[in-house]
């Protein structure tokens, strides 16, 4: 089972690196750190159907860290929501937005980008599902730096007020934000305690790239009653690209020709690889 997931994650990562290279720049670090979380969600967890992406009673997914949009598109492409070649393509001169966009990709449930806003939308979705007695679950992925935003904690308060046990948020805790180490720019710790203090059940994942650990966290999350759950997944910013891993400067940027070649080698891609 994990082998398939690992292959899907690798394929998504390859297409991401290829596409951002072709497009010239992008949020490499933030996209690369979330790939396993998204791969698990789209391949195993979310009750969604690429053939019917607007199905009313599907589970909902909110990429609150909207700048991970290309990571999401690449995982969704591997799952059949869009052709792989679309990631790097221009349509009428317009590329896919770097921030997750529902107008361009059927199956993206909400467009995001301005940080801190997605979790509130997920709360509204989950409260809707509760009130309407639907079995819909709502999943969100947040950035760690995004948790600097006050609105995240407003949303956290409201989710526990309404006992939203159909809401599972994961934090892609890669430890780096634009200006540096997350815990230097604006310390988050004790992070799990904060979520617990806001009435959430917190589950910590030591390796947010390990599918066994991710799966176990989500399975445990679904057993929790009367509380929303946060999965705090430790990840590596820039995961998979040797010179990007744990480098703040690779939040976003452009690769030189040599760096592109190195990235291709890191991901086992032949020269001339194409989606």
């Amino acid at each position: 089972m994990n082998r398939d997931l690992e292959q899907t994650a690798l394929a998504a990562r390859q297409n991401l690196f290829y596409s951002l290279g072709k497009l010239g720049s992008g949020h490499y670090g933030a996209c690369l750190s979330e790939i396993e979380l998204l791969t698990y969600l789209y391949c195993e967890e979310l009750r969604v159907d690429p053939a019917n992406p607007e199905k009313p009673d599907r589970d909902r997914f909110v990429l609150s860290k909207g700048h991970g949009g290309f990571g999401l598109y690449c995982v969704m492409a591997e799952c059949g929501f869009l052709p792989r070649k679309r990631i790097a393509a221009f349509e009428n001169g317009v590329m896919l937005p770097k921030h997750a966009d529902k107008h361009r990709i059927p199956g993206v449930d909400v467009s995001t980008g301005s940080l801190g806003q997605g979790l509130s939308v997920a709360v509204g979705m989950a409260l809707y599902a509760k009130r309407e007695q639907k079995t819909i679950r709502v999943y969100a992925v947040l950035g760690d730096g995004e948790c600097n935003e006050g609105q995240i904690w407003e949303a956290a308060m409201s989710a526990s007020k309404y006992r939203l046990d159909n809401l599972i948020a994961a934090v892609d805790y890669n430890g780096l934000q634009f200006d540096g180490d997350v815990n230097e720019v604006m310390p988050l710790e004790p992070f799990a305690d904060k979520w617990e203090a806001y009435g959430w059940h917190a589950i910590e994942v030591k390796d947010g790239h390990d599918f066994d650990q991710i799966r176990a966290a989500y399975q445990a999350a679904k057993e929790i009653r009367d509380k929303p759950v946060v999965i705090i997944a430790r990840t590596v910013k820039g995961k998979g690209i040797s010179f990007m891993e744990n480098e703040t400067t690779w939040h976003g940027g452009s690769c030189t020709k040599e760096q592109l070649q190195q990235g291709y080698r890191d991901l086992g891609m032949e020269e001339g690889w194409s989606a």
Binding site: Q117, L119, S120, V121, V123, G124, M125, A126, A155, S158
Partner: peptide, 12 residues
């Protein structure tokens, strides 16, 4: 801010 977001969630 959260209130507008929750409303957006319902609307979505």
């Amino acid at each position: 801010q959260n209130a507008v977001g929750i409303a957006a969630g319902f609307a979505s």
